[in-house]
């Protein structure tokens, strides 16, 4: 079986109080019965508007959250790259520490960490040695996102979850990061979950696309099918709102 990720009917509900002192509780169905599989080396694209639950799915895949029901299994490690390269890097840590931290906490020796940090930095095309002692604020948005990708890759995960990885970047920098992600996928046989609100970017990156709304998948199809012949009305609405050149 070639599937690296298998999710079966996962649900994640959050309980919120109506307001601070209230005893009345509301259930927010962030993820409401979602199933999908992702074969090795492929990209599963997840598209939807803010609040649809896609980031919650991301957190379930990397096991930051556990589902309330259903199951999600990943054959190997999964790491994550977030949207905002400014807030996702600790401003008080050097690049060396940021990238090496996940190895450090596993007791790996300093020399080995240094070697792997350098190796991973050159994979994301930031191989200059004096990058290691610098702090996040000394880099551009695109460079910071490369650092975030290096941090995610250093453990050599099977899966990378990319939650809006280019939405905060200028268009030509976006293009550079998307190209890098494609190259990395080929070189390292990575499996991706690629999340975005922008259908154009999802189409460019993905093999299979799921359109999410209010915690559910309203349509799941191959990239070609979604764009050529979307069946669901919401999907078509999203397609129509895309600005064209």
């Amino acid at each position: 079986m070639n599937d690296i990720i298998e999710a079966v009917d996962i649900k994640k509900y959050f309980i919120k109080r109506k307001f601070f002192f209230s005893s009345k509780k509301e259930e927010e169905k962030a993820v409401d019965g979602v199933s999908f599989t992702v074969p090795k080396g492929k990209t599963f694209g997840l598209v939807g508007e803010s609040g649809c639950g896609k980031s919650t799915v991301a957190k379930l895949v990397v096991k930051v959250l556990a589902p309330d029901s259903g199951s999600i299994s990943v054959r190997g490690d999964a790491d994550i790259v977030f949207q905002d390269p400014f807030s996702s890097l600790n401003p008080r840590m050097t690049v060396r520490k940021i990238i090496g931290e996940s190895l450090f906490v596993r007791g790996i020796k300093k020399d080995e960490i240094e070697r792997r940090v350098k190796e991973t930095l050159s994979t994301v095309k930031l191989g200059d040695s004096d990058v290691l002692d610098k702090y996040p604020h000394q880099f551009s948005g695109g460079e910071r996102q490369r650092i975030a990708i290096a941090r995610a890759l250093i453990r050599r995960p099977e899966v990378l979850v990319l939650d809006e990885p280019v939405s905060s970047l200028d268009v030509s920098i976006q293009a550079g990061i998307l190209n890098l992600l494609k190259d990395l996928q080929e070189e390292l046989h990575l499996t991706y979950i690629f999340i975005s609100h922008d259908l154009r970017v999802v189409e460019f990156m993905s093999d299979t696309v799921a359109v999410m709304k209010s915690g559910k998948f309203v349509e799941v199809a191959s990239r070609e099918e979604i764009y050529a012949s979307a069946k669901d009305a919401y999907t078509r609405q999203l397609l129509e709102s895309i600005p064209e050149i």
């Binding site: 030509s172 293009a175 190209n179 154009r200 460019f204």
Partner: peptide, 19 residues
């Protein structure tokens, strides 16, 4: 030209984006 070309579009057959 670069700013225009580097935006992915629907039905884009390109495997890589310029820039």
């Amino acid at each position: 030209r670069k700013l225009i070309d580097c935006i992915p579009r629907l039905g884009d057959k390109r495997k890589r984006l310029p820039g």
